[in-house]
């Protein structure tokens, strides 16, 4: 009886020591979950989720403060990835959410007055220009967040959707009917 108690106590102490050691030795800085969630998000930094950027949204999801279906640029695919990552059920977008095709901003150079407001608004520094100089968008770096649209005093920025070309064209999912009579050319 007494020896059993001793043995149990010894085991408890050893395991506790191991756990304590592991907690110190393998300590992880920061919250890895936030980074994992952030890695899934599309990094448009658009704020459509109601948070000022992708990282804040990721933090909110990790804390349980935000839902996983608040990121329109990520699309349903993004929700699926978040659901997978967090072990949650897939949750479709709310009825008010509109998902748009991918687009980039374009500045109408003849209207631009060079106010630099859009440059300040751009979360990824994708607009170049200087005060009283014409501005332009680096299309390759633009995430299509639309944050530059509201501040522009002369409404010279428009969103141009990215057209399909031989460069970004994708093979389609094979579609066929089970009976030959219904077979339509996909």
């Amino acid at each position: 009886m007494f020896s059993a108690l001793l043995a149990m106590a010894a085991i408890a102490i050893t395991l506790g020591a191991v756990l304590g050691f592991a907690a110190i030795r393998f300590r992880v800085e920061g919250n890895p979950l936030v980074d994992k969630i952030d890695a899934v998000l599309p990094q448009t930094q658009c704020g459509q989720c109601g948070y000022p950027g992708c990282k804040p949204y990721a933090t909110a999801i990790a804390e349980g403060a935000a839902d996983i279906n608040q990121c329109p640029p990520g699309g349903e695919e993004g929700i699926r990835k978040l659901a997978d990552l967090l072990g949650m059920e897939f949750k479709p977008f709310g009825s008010s959410t509109v998902t748009k095709p991918k687009a980039v901003a374009r500045i109408d150079e003849s209207t631009c007055i060079g106010c630099t407001l859009c440059i300040q608004a751009c979360p990824v520094d994708a607009i170049v220009g200087a005060a009283k100089q014409m501005h332009t968008v680096i299309a390759a770096e633009c995430t299509g967040c639309e944050l530059c649209l509201p501040p522009c005093p002369v409404d010279c920025i428009s969103m141009v959707s990215i057209e399909e070309s031989t460069g970004n064209w994708k093979w389609k999912y094979p579609v066929y009917a089970l009976t030959p009579s219904q077979t339509a050319a996909p």
Partner: peptide, 11 residues
């Protein structure tokens, strides 16, 4: 997305 994150963090 990775490039955008980097640029955003830099900004």
């Amino acid at each position: 997305a990775n490039a955008a994150r980097e640029r955003h963090e830099f900004r």
